[in-house]
Protein backbone atom coordinates (compact mmCIF):
# COMPACT_ATOMS: atom_id res chain seq x y z
CA UNK A 1 0.00 0.00 0.00
CA UNK A 2 1.45 3.38 -0.94
CA UNK A 3 2.20 6.25 1.41
CA UNK A 4 -0.48 8.20 -0.44
CA UNK A 5 -3.10 5.56 0.36
CA UNK A 6 -1.93 5.57 3.92
CA UNK A 7 -2.23 9.34 4.11
CA UNK A 8 -5.71 9.18 2.61
CA UNK A 9 -6.69 6.63 5.21
CA UNK A 10 -5.44 8.88 8.01
CA UNK A 11 -7.43 11.81 6.61
CA UNK A 12 -10.48 9.56 6.34
CA UNK A 13 -10.07 8.48 9.95
CA UNK A 14 -9.75 12.07 11.17
CA UNK A 15 -12.88 12.99 9.21
CA UNK A 16 -14.71 10.10 10.81
CA UNK A 17 -13.55 11.20 14.25
CA UNK A 18 -14.83 14.71 13.61
CA UNK A 19 -18.03 13.31 12.18
CA UNK A 20 -18.56 11.11 15.21
CA UNK A 21 -17.94 14.14 17.42
CA UNK A 22 -15.42 12.13 19.37
CA UNK A 23 -12.76 14.82 19.08
CA UNK A 24 -15.34 17.44 19.98
CA UNK A 25 -16.27 15.53 23.12
CA UNK A 26 -12.60 15.10 24.02
CA UNK A 27 -11.92 18.78 23.48
CA UNK A 28 -14.96 19.65 25.59
CA UNK A 29 -13.83 17.36 28.40
CA UNK A 30 -10.33 18.78 28.27
CA UNK A 31 -11.62 22.35 28.33
CA UNK A 32 -14.05 21.71 31.15
CA UNK A 33 -11.48 19.87 33.18
CA UNK A 34 -9.01 22.64 32.50
CA UNK A 35 -11.44 25.11 33.99
CA UNK A 36 -12.20 22.81 36.90
CA UNK A 37 -8.50 22.55 37.77
CA UNK A 38 -8.18 19.76 40.32
CA UNK A 39 -5.80 21.08 42.97
CA UNK A 40 -2.96 19.03 44.52
CA UNK A 41 -4.82 18.70 47.82
CA UNK A 42 -7.84 17.34 45.95
CA UNK A 43 -5.83 14.47 44.50
CA UNK A 44 -6.22 12.01 47.32
CA UNK A 45 -8.03 9.51 45.10
CA UNK A 46 -5.89 10.20 42.06
CA UNK A 47 -2.78 9.66 44.20
CA UNK A 48 -3.82 6.07 44.89
CA UNK A 49 -1.10 4.08 43.07
CA UNK A 50 -3.81 1.80 41.72
CA UNK A 51 -5.07 4.87 39.82
CA UNK A 52 -1.83 5.12 37.84
CA UNK A 53 -2.55 4.69 34.15
CA UNK A 54 0.03 1.89 34.19
CA UNK A 55 -0.36 0.61 37.74
CA UNK A 56 1.36 -2.73 37.16
CA UNK A 57 4.16 -2.30 34.60
CA UNK A 58 5.31 -5.93 34.69
CA UNK A 59 1.80 -7.18 33.98
CA UNK A 60 1.40 -4.68 31.14
CA UNK A 61 4.79 -5.73 29.77
CA UNK A 62 3.85 -9.41 29.83
CA UNK A 63 0.45 -8.77 28.25
CA UNK A 64 1.98 -6.70 25.47
CA UNK A 65 4.55 -9.41 24.81
CA UNK A 66 1.84 -12.09 24.60
CA UNK A 67 -0.45 -10.11 22.33
CA UNK A 68 2.45 -8.90 20.18
CA UNK A 69 3.32 -12.58 19.67
CA UNK A 70 -0.22 -13.74 18.96
CA UNK A 71 -1.91 -10.92 17.05
CA UNK A 72 -1.28 -8.85 13.94
CA UNK A 73 -1.25 -5.50 15.69
CA UNK A 74 0.72 -4.04 18.57
CA UNK A 75 1.62 -0.83 20.37
CA UNK A 76 -0.55 2.11 21.39
CA UNK A 77 0.50 2.55 25.00
CA UNK A 78 4.16 3.19 24.38
CA UNK A 79 7.41 1.70 23.17
CA UNK A 80 7.56 -1.96 24.01
CA UNK A 81 11.30 -2.46 23.54
CA UNK A 82 13.10 -5.77 23.18
CA UNK A 83 11.79 -7.33 19.99
CA UNK A 84 11.53 -11.03 19.43
CA UNK A 85 10.97 -13.62 16.75
CA UNK A 86 7.97 -14.83 18.66
CA UNK A 87 5.91 -17.85 17.78
Amino acid sequence: MSINTNFNHTIWLLKMLFKSKLLLICFFLFTVSGCAGVQPWERDLLADPAMALVSDPLEVGIDEHIYFSKEGSSGGRGFSGGGCGCN
Binding site: R43, D48, P57, G78, F79
Partner: peptide
Protein backbone atom coordinates in the same frame (compact mmCIF):
# COMPACT_ATOMS: atom_id res chain seq x y z
CA UNK B 1 -0.12 18.00 49.65
CA UNK B 2 3.59 18.00 48.89
CA UNK B 3 3.75 14.24 48.98
CA UNK B 4 0.79 13.94 46.66
CA UNK B 5 2.16 16.54 44.31
CA UNK B 6 5.52 14.78 44.33
CA UNK B 7 3.85 11.46 43.80
CA UNK B 8 1.75 12.78 41.00
CA UNK B 9 4.80 14.17 39.28
CA UNK B 10 6.98 11.15 39.69
CA UNK B 11 7.72 8.59 37.07
CA UNK B 12 6.35 5.13 37.27
CA UNK B 13 7.68 1.68 37.42
CA UNK B 14 10.84 -0.13 36.56
CA UNK B 15 10.61 -1.95 33.28
CA UNK B 16 11.91 -1.89 29.77
CA UNK B 17 8.92 -0.46 27.99
CA UNK B 18 8.39 3.27 28.11
CA UNK B 19 4.73 4.01 28.26
CA UNK B 20 3.40 7.45 27.55
CA UNK B 21 1.47 7.30 30.78
CA UNK B 22 4.60 6.74 32.79
CA UNK B 23 5.90 10.18 32.19
CA UNK B 24 2.59 11.76 32.96
CA UNK B 25 2.80 14.56 35.47
CA UNK B 26 -0.67 13.92 36.77
CA UNK B 27 0.01 10.31 37.36
CA UNK B 28 0.28 8.93 40.87
CA UNK B 29 3.08 6.67 41.84
Amino acid sequence: ATALATASCSLLGAHSGVYAAEVSADMPT
